[in-house]
Lab assay of single mutants.
Amino acid sequence: AVSDRLIGRKSVVMEAISPQNSGLVKVDGETWRATSGTVLDVGEEVSVKAIEGVKLVVEKLE
């Protein structure tokens, strides 16, 4: 599936994300709604860990 190619990809937070609120990330020039178990600020680099419905699950790059 097209979405499977996103797992493991680097992306950049475009709208802040917290455990309570989804935000936005940009992956390969496309904007996606995303969630995370931690707070992520605009501009942080993250990695796509999973896809749940139409949202990406991301975490901060170490």
Rank of each mutant, 00 (worst) to 15 (best):
A50K: 08
A1V: 12
E15N: 05
V58E: 03
G8S: 04
E45N: 08
D41H: 13
K55T: 15
T31C: 15
V48G: 01
P19K: 06
L61Y: 11
V25N: 01
V58N: 03
G8I: 01
T35A: 07
S36E: 05
I17M: 05
S11D: 02
G23P: 00
S22H: 10
V46I: 05
P19L: 06
T38L: 08
T31D: 12
G23V: 02
L40H: 12
E44H: 05
S36V: 02
V48Q: 01
I7C: 08
S47K: 14
W32N: 08
R5F: 08
I51P: 00
S47A: 11
S3D: 10
N21R: 15
T35F: 03
A16Q: 11
S11P: 04
V2A: 13
V48K: 01
D28F: 06
L6G: 01
G37I: 11
A1P: 12
S22G: 09
K10L: 14
L61C: 10
K55A: 13
A34E: 08
G23Q: 00
V25W: 00
V54F: 13
T31P: 06
D41A: 13
K55E: 14
E62T: 12
T35V: 14
G37Q: 13
T35P: 03
E52T: 09
I17N: 02
V13C: 01
E52M: 12
K55Q: 14
N21Y: 12
I51G: 03
A16L: 09
W32T: 08
V54N: 15
D28P: 00
S18W: 07
E59N: 04
V12D: 02
S36D: 04
R9Y: 04
G37E: 14
V46M: 01
P19F: 04
K49Q: 08
V54K: 13
V25T: 03
K60S: 08
K26G: 07
A1M: 13
R33E: 15
L56T: 03
V54W: 11
E52K: 09
V46N: 02
I51Y: 06
P19M: 05
V48H: 00
A16F: 08
V2M: 13
E44Y: 05
R5D: 09
G53T: 04
V39K: 11
R9E: 05
L6F: 06
S22K: 04
G43H: 04
N21A: 12
Q20L: 11
E59C: 06
T38G: 09
K49C: 12
G43M: 04
V46D: 01
I7E: 03
V13P: 00
V13Q: 03
G53H: 05
R33K: 12
E44S: 07
